[in-house]
Design a protein around this nucleic acid. Sequence first.
RNA 1: GGGGACGUAGCUCAGUUGGUUAGAGCGCUGCCCUGUCACGGCAGAGGUCGCGGGUUCGAGCCCCGUCGUCCCCGCCA
Length: 623
Amino acid sequence: MTLDFLGNLTRTHTCGELRASDAGKSVVLLGWVNRRRDHGNLIFLDLRDRYGISQVVLDKDLGTEAHGKAEQARSEYVVAAIGKVRLRDANVINPKMDTGEIEVVADQLLLLNDAKLAPFSPAEEAIANEEVRLKYRYIDLRRPEMQHNLHVRHKVAMAVRQYLSSQGFYEIETPFMTRSTPEGARDYLVPSRVHPGEFYALPQSPQLFKQILMISGMDRYFQIARCFRDEDLRADRQPEFTQIDLEMTFPQQETVFRVVEGFLSEAFKAVGIHLPTPFPQITYDEAMRNYGIDKPDLRLPGLVDLKPAFTAENLAALQIDANLPVIGLRIPRVGELSRKDRDDNKPLFDQRKGAKYIDDLKRLEKGFPEAAAKVRELAGGEADDLIIIVAGDAAAHIRASDTKSEGRLSEREIAIYSAAGNFRVELAKKYADRHGAFAVTDNVVASEERNTGLADGSVAFRPIWVTDFPMFEYDEETHKWMPSHHPFTSPHEEDMDRLVSDPASVRARYYDIAMNGLELGSGSIRIHQQQVQAEIFRALGMSDEEAKSRFGFFLDALQYGTPPHGGIALGLDRIVMILAGASSLREVIAFPKTAKAIDLMVDAPTPVSDMQLRELHIKPTKQ
RNA sequence: GGGGACGUAGCUCAGUUGGUUAGAGCGCUGCCCUGUCACGGCAGAGGUCGCGGGUUCGAGCCCCGUCGUCCCCGCCA
């Protein structure tokens, strides 16, 4: 087959834009052959590009060579169709297509390029398995879903840039090749050729750079920044990911919140969804009590305190630890659980830390009718809602190095709350088609494509600020207090005097933003006084020398007139994932990696030549 | 590092208790077809049952190992 040259041809329209009002126009369409329907003397070609699909008709009776070219055309050939837009007869209008009222009658068809038969077709309904999709990513990305996802991503990024710029933020780039600062995640390392045995590290986040930009008087900084962490992957975790990173001088917590609410609502507006502001906020302790998790999904009812439903005798008879919370969780409209359901649900509950549950209210009613009635009353909801009671197992022997601190949740309490909170999420996922709370989100995501004004996102998208996280967590293994966030997070000023005497009670000026049960981002007001920073390091059991060797450059900078400052970073990939209705980050990243951090398309990582290794002064210990 | 699911035609999958020549749909190739739009009709090609070993008269199916993809735990300041 001889291919045609493009010559000086340019497209007059995209494959998605022609409408009935364009009838009669002479047009040039350029695109891929999505499908060919060959009726012999009449051939239909669906031409596809990023903007849509248009039907091109090739009629042998026209006596041109275009029909002959169309006979040779195959899926994914790149062609030019030159002809006239024609209104379709009423009986052949395709209401499923945006361009369904017209077709292009081609009097010339150019085969600009042929295409090997692809392992799967972008036009196919059934999508191929991910291994094939990732290897042939350029085919996969031609699918309308993927084009849509990356379009959403672009719109979100642009809306964020525009909003932050309008609020006085400068977009400033920070280095990729930087210094390894131990702790946190494992670093990706880049060997230095010039300095044998030394390495740069790829940034886990631009944290210290953005703080230094505040010290530098840049006032407001943002960056859509790539971050790298060498940890095992999940559906919502990639080894390289993108953060909307920002930092500002002289903020109150609320200042940061308003900025984030501003750009998030702009980003949602950009994809056709109204997201009401301000977002609700709760403290970490409230989040644990009400949802059993620090990233609450507000689309479902929260936990309720069921202790008042039981007498001390009840609890003893039920082998429930009276000193621990008794919690109710409710999933709407699940109905009666079968014996099999109950068995299947068992592994979804984490009983490792001495929690247990009762999922059979009927049985409770027989033994403890008054308590059961009270449970129903406290849990609320409808008769067909699933109610489950979670409590501490009185028979459990928990190695309790409990860190109870006045006014805060103890570790054992947290264990019960999180067992309930995680069970709530797992059951909600399992019975999603019964309660329907997640379908609302899917429906808004789907309707957004129709682009009919702003869709109401107030039910489908439920952001929430979680504040006042504990400053420290006790590490059972090292018997040391560890920072819950990074060690530059400021404690609450009024908690400062308890740094040593009662570290568990110290609250951090650290906040998370969650949406629909997914952590979107976290940030904090930072420490800006060197003495406070030194106290924190001491509270963490870190010597001055140790602190200096790890963060010396930063501690130096802190002493040269550091303004109060703070900021936040949000996962762009996760925001887009929610907006695309996707269940994996890989659906919203053009070239993602597999669960083993492999790029199947370029086949990375790979061994490198001995020559390269020698230059870098590196000797692998095994091949 | 640990647990689980999956791996059969290019793609999506079925494959009974271990038993003859491993099937279907889509796709592909050829021919036919002027109103299809997941076009239709006829004919055809296409298989290292992921890989290696074992049990057996006989393995897609059972056992052991291994590789890959996905999900989860650990991990992710």
